[in-house]
Amino acid sequence: MAQPAHTLPAHPEKATLEGKNKYLGFWFFLGGETVLFASLFGTYLALRGSTADAPGPADLFHLELVFIMTMLLLTSSLTSVFAVISMKKGSFKGMIMWMWLTVALGLGFLGFEIYEFYEYNHLGLGYTSSAFASSFYSLVGTHGAHVTFGIGWIITLLIRYRKAGITLTNASKFYTAVLYWHFIDVVWVFIFTVVYLLGVGA
């Protein structure tokens, strides 16, 4: 079942037609996801001034916390790149190790996000408080849901293939999971800019 590393092609993730299909299909899927997030961003931008009498962005956001979250997620993207490099070198152990590190950093990010939501709720910003609140929680929450799904997905792969070695079947699975992970990272960069930097600045 496990193939020796030296027989793997240069791009094991798209060496088979199935892998090639998955690779392309996943890129298309991310195109759709882009529109999904763009719609949520548009909604947020239209409503971010509508705080009613509830707390607004400037009252709530602290860049220290968001900076830590950003660093965690950006670093997790880097470790997932290392995982892919390991995969292409044929180092199964390296890939697994870097992927676990990615998961750990993702969990750290998620923990801070839960803390953040809990804090804001504590400060009087419930989901139903204002149009700003609804759009903020929906945009950032949808991102958080994506992170959660990604963590579940990668853990599933890591446990399922813990002893399998790199195969032409699982290479494409790991690769698409990493693509997904990069995508949530990119979305976060926009959230950081549009939600937090603009929110503190304005």
């Binding site: 239209a46 409503l47 009613a52 149009a131």
Partner: peptide
């Protein structure tokens, strides 16, 4: 879920 996106009273649009 009680969102306020389209609730004019809470700043919706």
């Amino acid at each position: 879920f009680g969102g306020a996106f389209f609730d004019i009273g809470l700043g919706g649009n």
